[in-house]
Simulated scan of single mutants.
Amino acid sequence: MLDTNTITAIADELVEAGRTRTPVPRLTQRYPEMTVEDSYRVQDLWRQRCEANGRTLAGRKIGLTSKAMQYATGITEPDYGIIFDDMVLENGATVEWDAYTHPRIEVELAFLLNKDIAGPNATLFDVLNATEYVVPALEILDSRIEMEGRTIVDTISDNAAMGAMVVGGNPVRPHDVDLRWVAAILYKNQVVEETGVAAGVLNHPGAGVYWLANKIAAHGDTLKAGELILAGSFTRPLWVHKGDTVFADYGKLGTITCRFE
Rank of each mutant, 00 (worst) to 15 (best):
E77M: 14
A110G: 14
L223I: 05
F234G: 00
P136M: 01
T123A: 01
A93C: 03
A164F: 12
G206W: 03
V15L: 10
L45N: 06
P25Y: 10
T255H: 14
D3V: 00
G243S: 09
S39Y: 01
A52R: 08
L179P: 13
S66T: 11
Y250H: 03
L253P: 05
P32E: 05
G206L: 04
L230W: 10
P171I: 02
G18M: 11
S39R: 01
A17S: 13
V246Q: 07
V182C: 01
F260C: 06
A58N: 05
R21V: 14
F111W: 12
T195V: 15
H102C: 07
Q48N: 10
G18H: 14
V107S: 06
S143M: 08
V134A: 02
G168Q: 03
P174T: 07
L138K: 05
I105K: 01
K188L: 11
I185P: 02
A184Q: 03
L202Y: 07
N91T: 02
I75P: 03
C258V: 11
D3H: 02
E90N: 14
R26V: 12
S157T: 14
V177T: 12
A68W: 02
R21L: 11
L212S: 06
N189T: 13
H102L: 09
Q70T: 00
A68H: 04
V135I: 15
D86Y: 12
G163S: 08
I152D: 09
V24S: 09
A58E: 00
A58L: 08
G196S: 09
L14C: 13
A72F: 03
A11R: 06
L212R: 04
D176T: 03
G81T: 12
R60S: 09
R26N: 07
N5A: 14
G119F: 09
V88M: 08
F111K: 04
L113P: 09
L112Y: 07
T6I: 15
M1C: 04
E139Y: 08
V166N: 03
Y133T: 00
P205E: 01
N203Y: 07
V201D: 05
M69W: 00
T20A: 08
F260D: 00
A122G: 06
N129L: 12
T195Q: 15
V209W: 04
K188P: 08
Y40C: 10
L228A: 00
H219N: 12
T8D: 12
L141C: 10
T20Q: 11
A213M: 05
I62C: 02
R236K: 15
M165P: 11
Y187A: 07
R144G: 11
L202T: 00
Y187K: 15
D38P: 05
H241K: 13
P174S: 06
D38Y: 01
I75W: 01
A199G: 06
G149F: 00
G163F: 02
R259A: 14
E193N: 09
L112F: 10
L186F: 13
I216S: 04
L228I: 13
F260S: 06
W97Q: 04
L89G: 03
N129T: 12
E148D: 15
T20V: 10
C50F: 12
N159Q: 11
A130I: 04
V172R: 14
A160T: 13
G74R: 04
S143R: 11
Y40T: 05
T28V: 09
A17F: 08
D44R: 12
T28Q: 10
G149W: 02
E90K: 15
N189I: 11
